[in-house]
């Protein structure tokens, strides 16, 4: 899951970035509105975490542009101005959720997950896929009540495929969901993660679509 974080403050930005990474999200962090616009034009994000007080292009302007060009990526707004009018203004401008500073990092992550869940049309973090019981929040996967350990990367690949059942995901799409801007992408990693997942969860779980990528059929 790739998230765009737009926050001009160094300390808050680096903290939120670290927190979201720790929660297994791929994070791109930008400190101004125009760079954020550029990133949104070129990359498909699962979620945007947006600070309103931004240099060069304000958060609300960016939000207006985003909704104006029909992108419905979920947006979580962060701001130090915690007034009701402010919240209403942000939500009316197209934000999906709102957090006032100072906020709790765990709450921010929980809200991010909730927004993602909603955008994927789910209402709970737990889902069943054939013989597998998956808890997306706790990042646990059980087969016949036996827990199967996964690495963070394997989990991210599985998450991307599970949340897009029946839609083939290209290798680059999977890589995007795996790595933020500053992370080195290792070659062949997707193939390695897919083969590991097949070994752990069953060879027929993930299908290869020749010339396109990989897919998990609808359950």
């Amino acid at each position: 899951m790739r998230i765009l974080l737009v926050e001009d403050d160094d300390l808050i930005g680096s903290g939120v970035e670290a927190g979201l990474r720790h929660a297994s999200f791929a994070v791109d962090w930008t400190q101004d509105g125009r760079n954020a616009k550029l990133a949104l034009e070129t990359t498909d994000y699962a979620l945007v975490v947006l600070d309103l007080g931004l240099p060069r292009m304000s958060g609300l302007e960016l939000l207006g542009w985003l909704r104006g060009c029909g992108k419905n990526v979920p947006v979580l707004v962060l701001t130090a101005k915690g007034t009701v009018a402010d919240k209403v203004g942000g939500l009316d401008a197209g934000a999906d959720d709102y957090l006032g500073k100072p906020f709790d990092l765990t709450e921010l992550i929980a809200r991010c997950r909730a927004l993602l869940r909603r955008s994927q049309g789910r209402s709970v973090e737990a889902l069943r896929y054939r013989a597998l019981a998956v808890d997306l929040a706790a990042k646990t996967i059980l087969r016949d009540d036996v827990r199967i350990p996964l690495t963070a990367r394997e989990w991210a690949v599985l998450y991307q495929l599970l949340t897009h059942q029946g839609v083939p995901q290209s290798k680059s799409r999977l890589e995007e969901s795996l790595y933020g801007w500053h992370e080195e992408v290792e070659s062949n990693t997707i193939e390695v993660h897919i083969s590991n997942l097949r070994k752990k969860l069953g060879a027929d779980l993930i299908k290869t679509v020749r010339g396109i990528g990989y897919v998990m059929e609808r359950a």
Partner: peptide
Amino acid sequence: HELKTPLAAIKVQAQVALVAKDVAQQQLA
């Protein structure tokens, strides 16, 4: 309002330090 920003930063970084697994990340936070 201005005081809230550094407070938010402190809180976020402190929480990162709490959940960080490796020592380097914890120290940075």
